[in-house]
Amino acid sequence: MAIDPVCGMEVDPKAAQFKSLYKGKVYYFCSRHCKEAFDKDPEYYLTHGPVGMPHHGGTPDRR
């Protein structure tokens, strides 16, 4: 199982519909929202860790 770097959910890579390639590594997402959030600023999620569901708890606080 892979971890969605945005929301922290477990995602099955074989079944994942949403994924991104970043610096030679593949990231899997639970939803389009998570993927879009990641694509906007991948470094943020990779350095801060999962921040919860962007589409449930609004946009993450990124001040």
Partner: peptide, 25 residues
């Protein structure tokens, strides 16, 4: 973009410039 696969322990990508960028190459 293209495809990314693990082959014999290496990560191989085939595709256009965007996949090359995604691989950080």
């Amino acid at each position: 973009q293209g495809v990314v696969a693990q082959i014999g322990g290496s990560v191989v990508a085939v595709g256009n410039e965007r996949i090359v960028e995604g691989m950080g190459a």
